[in-house]
Design a binder for these strands. Structure first.
Lengths: 231, 231
DNA sequence: GCACCGACTTGAGATAGATCAAATATCTTT
DNA sequence: AAAGATATTTGATCTATCTCAAGTCGGTGC
């Protein structure tokens, strides 16, 4: 891929917006593109970090597995999203592994470029801080969900979060949610067994709140669903 | 408290070490001291953030509660530790509330001072990033523990993490752990009911791995405990 | 179009940990 | 030091969710 194109991709990221073209070029120079196919590991738990990643297209998961081999998906990363920033700022190996769940293209941005960027540009630095903060915020949300909500509530929470932003209408029926990965993976993300996930989806369908066709979920009764999810 | 003393306290924090005295003074100028007694709320979930806090002495908890009133402690903060940084970098209200679990003294550092600091000093910025990263890392650890480990394993993990650093000896028996809060609070922190926590401590005592006297736990057989916690 | 393979569903049963309740123990306040 | 209040322990029971097992569905390659 030409460095022109890399430049263009970087320029669309919130992180680099507002950066001057020459700064972006500097970053682009320290960027490595890679293509991975479904199932490939990008890094293992315990590997040292040399930078962070941007997903150009495809989908991957961050996860760890127990000694018994049970896998727990912590995070799903799709196009335009970044991962691996946090580890870069500590002298620590990756606490999770990253695996492609679809053929994907990635950009790797070298740690050195980021550290230079911080040195030069306080705005960049603040964006980096904002990015980390928002990841932290969503992890707190996960902790809250795992500890205070039932499986059904977590599923409903997930569906509501992933409605494809039809706007502010309160009870717009027919909202469409596309599951970005296999149901087994989503279940793991929600810390539920696949069987339980399947049953919950079934039950929500049966009571007319949603309808499910493969990876497409349609929210039929938003209010009822919200109510169910609330308390 | 005199601003001299504030200056001295700030200077001991890793975050401000390496900063010049005049810079620290600038920070100190934007610092507000507060004393809270046991049970007092420092901020509520939903409150807007105007800076972050340093604990001078005392102990507090960050937590949220479910609609049914069940409380879940996310984080315990003791002397020398900071909290509330992450929220400061986003336009979001606090996702948790903070409550003193012992009479405490706090320093509040205004957001504006932090943002100025970032503007001026890339080292400070990097430390801020490192701080957030490390918090994020430990949250990932929590998520891992909640999703892959049993209650007993979490308790053991907690005890092993909180041994008061007797060094690298592998099987130094008699390591002493002091629970920094009531057992009910620790249990919540570990996402366990108080009853279950009590029983686990009892069982570990019964099998001779630890001994418990109030808030003092002594690890008697480190190896056995580790083994138990592993798998 | 058919056979195969992984993903999903459905049923039955098992269980870790929660909840409820009552008895102690510990800390606070007077 | 006694009375209350709060925290902890212990026992008995309950239940949400997991696990195991057996289909069924849906896409892919031949």
């Amino acid at each position: 891929m030409s460095s022109i194109k890399v430049h263009a991709i970087l320029a669309t990221l919130p992180l680099f917006k507002e950066m001057g073209p020459e700064e972006i070029d500097r970053i682009a120079q320290n960027t490595r593109e890679s293509h991975v196919s479904r199932g490939e590991i990008i890094f293992q738990r315990g590997d040292p970090s040399h930078g962070f990643y941007v997903v150009i297209h495809g989908q991957l998961k961050l996860a760890f597995s127990s000694p018994q081999g049970v896998e727990k998906v912590v995070h799903l990363v799709g196009p335009g999203k970044t991962f691996g920033e946090a580890v870069m700022f500590m002298d620590m190996p990756y606490p999770v592994y990253a695996q492609a769940i679809a053929d994907s293209a990635l950009l790797h941005i070298a740690r050195s470029a980021v550290f230079e960027g911080i040195e030069r540009d306080p705005v960049f630095c603040r964006k980096m801080l904002a990015g980390l903060s928002s990841r932290l915020h969503s992890l707190i949300g996960d902790v809250e969900a795992y500890s205070l909500r039932s499986c059904t509530q977590r599923v409903i929470g997930y569906l509501l979060q992933h409605d494809c932003g039809c706007g502010a209408t309160d009870n717009c029926a027919g909202i469409h949610v596309n599951l970005p990965a296999s149901k087994t993976v989503i279940a793991s993300r929600l810390n539920i067994s696949p069987e339980t996930f399947s049953r919950i989806l079934h039950d929500l369908s049966a009571s007319g709140m949603i309808s499910v066709k493969g990876k497409d979920v349609t929210i039929l009764d938003m209010n009822k669903l919200r109510e169910y999810g609330q308390q």
